[in-house]
Design a protein around this nucleic acid. Sequence first.
DNA 1: GCGAATTATTTTAAGCTTAAAATATCTGCG
DNA 2: CGCAGATATTTTAAGCTTAAAATAATTCGC
Lengths: 191, 191
Amino acid sequence: MDEGASKDIGDSEGEAPAVLLDAETRLHGDDHRAELRLWLRLLTLTNLIESEIRSRLRGAFDVTLPRFDLMAQLEKAPEGLTLGDLSRRMMVSAGNVTGLVERLVQDGLVERRPAPGDRRSALVTLTPEGRAGFEAMAHAHGDWVGDLFAGLSDADIEQLMALLARAKASARAASEAARNAPSIHKEPSNG
Amino acid sequence: MDEGASKDIGDSEGEAPAVLLDAETRLHGDDHRAELRLWLRLLTLTNLIESEIRSRLRGAFDVTLPRFDLMAQLEKAPEGLTLGDLSRRMMVSAGNVTGLVERLVQDGLVERRPAPGDRRSALVTLTPEGRAGFEAMAHAHGDWVGDLFAGLSDADIEQLMALLARAKASARAASEAARNAPSIHKEPSNG
DNA sequence: GCGAATTATTTTAAGCTTAAAATATCTGCG
DNA sequence: CGCAGATATTTTAAGCTTAAAATAATTCGC
């Protein structure tokens, strides 16, 4: 397995990604330059950290991020979770979970057994080996994340948390608005 | 070997992902709770926006994000780019670019031709169709990103830009430190 | 000019991911 | 009861992604 850093989309970082906007767009009205730069920076940072964590998980424990994520969910639910629970909590498709669980079962890290009372469902739990492995990984993972953000002060973190919360609310609102009114070509002012 | 987009890892969001830290970790010293929450929030936000953009690109233009990204790089370099250039600029592996270009050529959106002067290389450029398609996509993409961040004020954006820059510097420093001194089990103080 | 090292690209093997279709089971309603 | 619709999971087809090995061509040093 493995991983990688990923995606960029725009410019490396310093200047305005003017290329993403042709002259006509600007005439249209909004130009979204600041938002595009923000998105680019957010994406770059997240990809940087994510690929660092992926690569460390692979190097130190020979495990992928999705597997780590799945095990983290199980760790929080000692009584076990169904595939559907996992799918919802991990925010990935059901088919994805099927394959992930299959591979983790093969590795002896999780166990699958019929759910009592519903023959459609299966309950997934960590094996003792899986639990022990996860604990070591979670410990290292915490240290790594601590390291990666070591250059931020407590105040920086606090401010970031607040701003990211606001950004998330904004993005969620926009997503839902689009979901409830599709096909409107998303022109804020003159559509 | 593997990889994909990734997702959550911790809690849905509100509370401390205490599960990622067992008692022993806390005794060890640092506990990194704040950093873990920050990382979780950053990841959640980025995934939310990224999947929204992916889904809109697919719905409106039947194109994937990696293809859009590749075309964006070509748009900025009208004289064309080699596969190696693309790999570096997109921050993905060379093999990845080979396949992406292959598929885009099949769709008639980009063109591949031997690079003059180096028989190992190929120059990739947008076809007229690819260029026209990209312009429409970039326009919509700009609007979407503008929408998604519409709830942030100019001041919010400015602050976020500054804090994210600081976070990026921190993460980069930590990555490079690790790269130059591997195998030290990453214990900040007592390794 | 020859061979070693470097660079550009492709191939291979494996895993992640999704949407959509197919299965299987369950629940509610007459 | 019996069936219709909902729910849980698997399967399928396609694409993305990487690391590592394999090819091919270039460059450098002598």
